Amino acid sequence: MKKVYLVLIVIASLFQSCKNDDCGECFTPPQGFIFELVNTETGENIFTNDTYDPEDIAIVNTINDTEREFQFIAENQIDLIQISKVGWETEIVNLEVKVGEDTVFNLYVNAERTTDDCCSFTKYNEIEIRNAEFELDSQTGVYKILVDLN
């Protein structure tokens, strides 16, 4: 009988130690990446001016050759590519963004999912845009990728 009480006390103390009332619900999803592809010479969006077709976009993680989800946002003559599934877990990705046969740029991200003061969030250790010139609009968070069509 003593063993049963001892087991019950151990189980009860385990449940007590798991309960932490100081932490409420605190979760911050990772920030997505938004890109606008523009002609280097004219500054025009290359989807808006029909240079490229959004149906031809492909995004592949070259580290493991898997396709990555993205959304094409077409509103009010502003055509953007949004990649929002990076950083939900600790990971390193090297995304090749292609339109048709053309590799437009590569996005390298080293993301670490972490917890601090009971809150879960993503820390980006490194973000690099490779093989293209770009500008980051700090107000909107949109990366403007400059595409040389010559």
Rank of each mutant, 00 (worst) to 15 (best):
L136H: 02
T103G: 01
N131I: 08
E89F: 15
C118I: 00
Y5N: 08
V109I: 07
T42E: 15
G24H: 01
I57C: 08
P29T: 03
T114D: 03
V104W: 03
V104H: 02
Q31A: 15
E69F: 11
N45L: 09
N64V: 02
I92A: 10
Y5R: 14
T42F: 12
K19Y: 15
I9F: 09
F47V: 05
N150W: 09
F27K: 09
V99M: 06
E135H: 10
E133Q: 15
F15G: 13
Q139K: 06
F70S: 00
Q82R: 14
T140H: 02
Y5H: 13
N49R: 02
A74H: 11
N45I: 06
F15P: 02
N94L: 13
D53K: 05
G87D: 07
E112G: 05
L8M: 14
G141K: 04
Y5V: 13
C26R: 07
Y108V: 02
N64I: 05
T114Q: 06
E36R: 04
E126K: 15
P30D: 08
V10W: 04
A12E: 08
I145P: 09
E96Q: 12
V38F: 03
I127F: 08
G141N: 03
V109W: 00
Q71W: 08
L14W: 15
S84C: 00
T103N: 04
N76D: 12
I46C: 11
A111E: 03
V7T: 13
L37K: 01
A111K: 04
E101C: 01
N61C: 01
F15Y: 12
I92E: 15
Q139T: 11
I83K: 02
L136D: 00
E89M: 13
T122N: 02
L80C: 02
A58Y: 07
I57D: 00
T51A: 07
C23W: 01
V4Y: 14
N76F: 07
T28F: 05
L8D: 05
C23I: 02
G87S: 13
V99C: 12
T115V: 15
E55Q: 11
N49K: 08
P54N: 11
V7Q: 10
P54S: 06
V38T: 05
D50E: 10
A58T: 11
D148N: 10
F72Y: 09
L95I: 02
N125W: 03
I73W: 07
T48C: 11
C26K: 06
E36M: 06
R130H: 08
Y5K: 13
A58G: 03
Q71Y: 08
N110P: 05
T115S: 11
